[in-house]
């Protein structure tokens, strides 16, 4: 589909996806509960930092960091890999492939459509963070910080979504790639800054993690939200993040295009 047609179709796609995402109210509530891991981590790390700071993180710093992690997780999560695996196994991907628009736009729309609801969940947590630890540890303080934070959130979501597509596309070759997604998620939890700030890792390991995509999915937006970097450092990290967006994009689209050729359209 050409860009103009896509721009005309996207608002309706997003509206319909939003209607789908709010169809089950109970499911939404369960989903909110399932994203509270950063709050658990916050309590644990606050206990660790009770007697003395960990690195330069005192109790208030952990509160600011993990409430930011909660908010960023709401804004950058994606689940396309599970959906693609399901649709490949069931053969229902066929219905998407029959339409004159890439299914990837459909998956993106399904993921983005829940955004307003996720902002509704994240916003009170951010306000709580400001009340507890002060604005300087909870939200960006300058216009450039806000700008880079928003770019980093977009980049974090893009890497997460495109990694989902790349791994999901592997199911077109292997019948199922759900276990690979689980491995990816484990690496994400360990390497992204989701369980603890990446600066706690030893120097050698941290250098490796700086070259992997995980930190740019979660840690970088959280660090920018809590004002952890000066402008040159922030610019360098955001540039590295967007290099990952481009690389992951090329990988995802390449795997998808090749994978669709192998689609067996099971059933029916």
């Amino acid at each position: 589909m050409n860009a103009r047609g896509l721009m005309r179709a996207l608002p309706t796609m997003l509206r319909v996806s939003f209607a789908e995402s709010v169809a089950y109210r109970a499911e939404m509530f369960v989903w909110v509960l399932s994203t509270t891991m950063p709050l658990v981590n916050m309590v644990l790390w606050m206990a660790v930092a009770k007697s003395a700071p960990v690195g330069h993180f005192g109790q208030a710093d952990f509160v600011g960091y993990f409430l930011a992690t909660f908010a960023v997780r709401q804004l950058t999560s994606a689940w396309a890999a599970w959906l693609i695996n399901w649709e490949v196994k069931q053969g229902t991907l066929a219905m998407r492939l029959l339409r004159p628009i890439s299914p990837l736009w459909g998956y993106a729309s399904d993921n983005v459509a829940g955004f307003p609801m996720r902002v509704v969940v994240a916003l009170p947590v951010v306000l709580l963070s400001i009340a507890l630890v002060g604005a300087h540890k909870a939200v960006p303080q300058h216009a450039w910080q806000w700008g880079l934070f928003l770019v980093a959130v977009l980049g974090g979501w893009a890497i997460t979504f495109l990694a989902n597509v790349a791994i999901g596309a592997l199911s077109l070759f292997l019948d199922s790639s759900q276990k690979m997604m689980e491995v990816w998620m484990v690496l994400f939890f360990v390497c992204s800054g989701y369980m603890y700030p990446v600066e706690f890792l030893p120097d050698g390991l941290r250098t490796v993690i700086d070259w992997l995509p995980f930190r740019y999915q979660m840690g970088l937006p959280v660090e920018l939200m809590t004002n952890a970097h000066d402008l040159p450092t922030a610019l360098g990290l955001v540039a590295r993040q967007w290099a990952w967006v481009l690389g992951m994009g090329a990988l995802a689209v390449g795997l998808w295009k090749q994978g669709v050729k192998c689609f067996a359209a099971f059933g029916g």
Binding site: G5, A9, E20, Y24, T92, L98, R99
Partner: peptide, 26 residues
């Protein structure tokens, strides 16, 4: 059209699928 597969959005009324198809097929 496959009798054993559907394009209708399961959780929404068919009118939403019609509207979606209108947009996608321009």
């Amino acid at each position: 059209v496959m009798g054993q597969k559907q394009q209708l959005l399961w959780d929404l009324p068919p009118a939403e699928t019609f509207e979606l198809n209108r947009a996608i097929y321009d």
